[in-house]
């Protein structure tokens, strides 16, 4: 069993600093989720955790295991690729769902729906 205590000093310092940095960014993101006023403001802050927060912790983990096992460990890259591709999808879907719900309730603080698609559908009907 390998233990992180076997890391050389320079690697331990880098890994520790990167881990704390990533955790701090994630905390600020979640803190903003708690503090900001409206849903549309809050939807921005979790991306702190999924962009720089995740990247820093993943780099720390890669350095840690690469130095420990004396071979290149890159499997953490998979988490980075997966998180950076899926987060925009979930946030977009959530924001659009919120927009849809606010519009359906006639909330005046959100912009109204584009009238274009309905007009288009009407124009398309005679051809069909």
């Amino acid at each position: 069993m390998i233990a992180p205590g076997d890391l050389p000093l320079w690697a331990a310092i880098i890994v520790g600093a990167l881990t704390i940095g990533g955790a701090a960014f994630t905390l600020v993101g979640s803190f903003g989720l708690w503090r900001l006023r409206s849903f549309y403001d809050r939807v921005h802050t979790p991306t702190l955790g999924t962009s720089l927060g995740t990247v820093l912790i993943i780099v720390a983990s890669m350095i840690c295991f690469t130095v420990l096992e004396s071979r290149v460990i890159l499997q953490e890259l998979l988490i980075f690729v997966f998180v950076s591709v899926t987060t925009p999808v979930t946030l977009m879907l959530l924001a659009r769902a919120a927009l849809y719900r606010d519009r359906a309730e006639g909330n005046a603080s959100v912009p109204p729906a584009d009238p274009q698609p309905i007009l288009k559908a009407r124009e398309a009907e005679p051809d069909a």
Binding site: G29, H44, T47, S51, V85, L99, Q116
Partner: peptide
């Protein structure tokens, strides 16, 4: 859309292909 939503501070909401208008927050 992925670039803009993954960047903190902007969220892509709706794109209308007919008019080319993109709604963001």
């Amino acid at each position: 859309s992925i670039i803009m939503t993954a960047t903190p501070g902007t969220v892509w909401l709706n794109f209308d292909a007919g008019s080319g208008r993109l709604l963001i927050h």
